[in-house]
């Protein structure tokens, strides 16, 4: 247990904690604002990760190391990755247009949000300013945060804990049911797909060229060049072409046309 945590466990705040807070709090707020403001969903996910990691740091300073680890592993690691995974399935190009379609929605949302924030701050200021934090050290009784939480979780909260396990299993089943899809047409065999490609004719007879023939670009988003020197668009995966990979294709084209 670090000295910082010991102090937090006793409730009082220290200079170290203040430094951490004042450094990370603006980062968290900026990340949150960015989450709301950026167009790209991928950027939003990254900014959310920033906020979550900041909160994990706050958990450590508030004598909650177990939660801090869970925050990093479960939230930032698993949940947020799930977000990115779905983003990939939906398509990374699914950026929002920033034009509001519901009349007055944005203005009302900002006004209500500001009002709500003011009310909450007023409530906190009015309700808690007089209290002195006790710290969780007494509750841990020297056993350490994780052991203390485990004891509580498997004694007083054991039924709630078991209920959450049922909830998680149900959620997993639900996700499978929701995403499962019965094929409506018979799946094509490899032979059938090959025959179809041959029948289509054209340049599809040979295998696709591999990417990355330039010495200074060996990434998968760098397109191959055909024997006549032109770019082979089919050499770059579809998903990469649409947005992020475009600049590279254009770079190659520019270089080809160069001096």
């Amino acid at each position: 247990m670090t000295g910082l945590e010991v102090l937090a466990a006793h409730g009082a705040t220290t200079t170290h904690e203040a430094v951490v807070f004042w450094f990370l709090a603006p980062v968290a707020v900026a990340g949150a604002l960015g989450l709301v403001l950026v167009r790209s969903a991928v950027h939003a996910a990254v900014l959310l990760a920033v906020v979550m990691l900041s909160l994990a740091a706050f958990y450590t300073t508030e004598a909650a190391p177990f939660l801090a680890v869970v925050q990093v592993v479960v939230y930032t690691g698993a949940v947020l990755m799930l977000f990115l995974f779905v983003l990939m399935l939906v398509g990374v190009d699914s950026t929002d247009s920033l034009v509001e379609t519901l009349r007055g929605q944005r203005l009302a949302a900002v006004a209500l949000g500001l009002g709500f924030a003011v009310l909450l701050v007023a409530a906190i200021a009015g309700a808690i300013s007089g209290f002195h934090p006790k710290g969780v050290g007494g509750a841990e009784a020297g056993k350490g945060n994780v052991v203390a939480i485990a004891e509580l979780l498997f004694s007083r909260y054991v039924f709630a804990f078991e209920a959450t396990s049922a909830l998680l299993i149900t959620a997993g089943l639900g996700a499978m049911v929701l995403t499962h899809r019965e094929p409506t047409t018979p799946r094509l065999t490899q032979k059938e797909r090959m025959l179809e490609r041959v029948a289509r004719g054209g340049s599809g007879m040979a295998p696709l060229p591999g990417p990355g023939v330039y010495a200074d670009h060996d990434a998968v988003d760098t397109p191959a060049l055909l024997p006549d020197g032109s770019i082979a668009p089919t050499s770059v995966p579809e998903y990469l072409q649409v947005s992020a990979a475009r600049p590279h294709v254009e770079d190659v084209e520019r270089e080809l046309e160069g001096p």
């Binding site: 519901l102 929605q105 009302a108 949302a109 209500l112 949000g113 009002g115 709500f116 009310l119 909450l120 007023a122 409530a123 009015g126």
Partner: peptide, 19 residues
């Protein structure tokens, strides 16, 4: 989102009333 807006308005009203 419109529904969510009215939910937020309700939350504001409840908080204001509590205050």
């Amino acid at each position: 989102r419109s529904y969510a807006l009215s939910m937020l308005a309700g939350a504001v009203a409840v908080t204001a009333a509590l205050l």
